[in-house]
Simulated scan of single mutants.
Amino acid sequence: MLCEPVSRAAISEAVEEQAAEWLTLLMSDEAGEQERAAWQRWRALDPEHERAWQHIEAVTQRLHGLHRGAAAQALSSTGAPANRKRRQLLLWLGVVGGTGLLAAQTDAWQGARSLRADYRTATGEQREVALHDGSVVTLNTGSAMNVRFDGQRRLIELLAGEILVVSGHGAGSNAPLVVATREGLVRALGTRFSVRQDAGKSTVDVFESAVEVRPHDSAGAPLQLAAGRSVSFSRVHADAPHALDAYADAWSRGQMIVDDVTLGEFIAELSRYRPGILHCAPEVAQLRLSGVFPLADTQRILNMLPNSLPVQVRSRTRYWVTLEAVQ
């Protein structure tokens, strides 16, 4: 299946920051007529500025009912430049809620980019993308990537989630195929492999041939990872490679296959495919299970668990579910 990115005019990161700075100022008590006139001149100066402002106005509809002074204080209070930038980008994301609380996420900047990615999937969604060189990329739940191909390099930038890559041999395939994560670069050596982006680490599983793994801040030689091996790495170094889980790519077939894992581990993984909160109570977290489960219906999976384990499923709402001991 050939999928094309949504057509839209790009907005640079610098202009995104400028728009966020203007909104922070306008929400504060410091903006007078002079500042408002300067803001209007900035909007008129470049069509990209106006597009950025239209976007930020759209997401700030979620600020309805929030006191302007409280919002400005949350967004522009004094602090380190990095913290100020982060608050501005949280605003770009539209994560200020109507209660006046700032739902701060540690990866807010990457989250903003994920919303504007070339290809992305929602929670519980999977998608296959055929690229121009014949490569096929499958995006797992809650994933996002950008694709940048030129004569020197075929670059896939993984912004969030997980992808399975089958490298192609069509036009332009002589250029290196590289997957970039926050922690480093994964170069394909004619292969089938997956890359997963987690908080503070990336994980690579190799199913065929081999890849090279190079953490961003490592001065050493890249790690060559052969088929049947898996490794996680930070920006500084790679962990010791280990044998690949036999069912590591089951998700690409719409399945979750587990063999003697704890219920806590199982629920943590299942929660990636289901919106809302899915919690496992500590008293049942060490129960163990095995099985093959269809990812297309997470509610069916939850309904099956009491048939094999002494647990009950308590649903406070559709989006807040807890696994707990049978009373």
Rank of each mutant, 00 (worst) to 15 (best):
C3D: 13
E4S: 11
E4N: 08
A14W: 06
E17N: 07
L25N: 01
L26G: 08
D29C: 10
G32Q: 14
A37Y: 10
R41C: 04
P47T: 13
A52T: 02
E57A: 05
V59Y: 01
H64T: 15
H64R: 12
H67Y: 14
A70G: 14
T78I: 14
W92M: 09
G98F: 12
G100I: 07
L102S: 03
A103P: 04
Q105W: 10
Q105Y: 12
D107C: 07
G111A: 09
L115E: 12
R116K: 11
A117N: 03
T121M: 01
T121Q: 01
R127F: 04
R127T: 03
A130Y: 08
A130N: 10
G134H: 05
S135V: 06
V136Y: 03
V136T: 13
T141H: 12
A144L: 03
M145E: 10
N146Q: 07
R148K: 10
D150C: 08
R154W: 07
R154E: 09
I156A: 08
L158A: 00
L159T: 14
E162S: 07
L164Q: 11
G172A: 11
P176K: 00
V178C: 06
V179C: 00
A180S: 03
R182H: 02
E183H: 02
G184S: 00
L185D: 02
F193W: 06
Q197W: 10
D198A: 15
A199Y: 13
G200L: 01
S202G: 08
S209V: 07
S209C: 05
R214D: 08
H216D: 09
H216P: 04
A221G: 08
L223A: 06
L225E: 06
L225W: 05
A227F: 08
G228V: 14
R229T: 15
V231G: 05
S232C: 08
S232M: 05
F233V: 02
S234D: 11
V236Y: 14
V236L: 12
A240N: 11
H242G: 05
A243L: 11
D245F: 09
Y247K: 06
D249W: 07
A250D: 08
W251K: 02
Q255T: 06
D260H: 08
V261G: 04
L263R: 01
L263N: 01
G264Y: 09
E265R: 13
E265A: 13
A268N: 15
S271C: 08
R274S: 13
P275H: 05
G276Y: 09
L278R: 12
P282S: 10
V284Q: 02
V284P: 04
A285F: 10
L289S: 06
L289I: 07
V292A: 07
P294R: 01
I301L: 02
I301C: 00
V313L: 03
S315G: 03
R318V: 11
R318E: 13
V321G: 04
E324W: 06
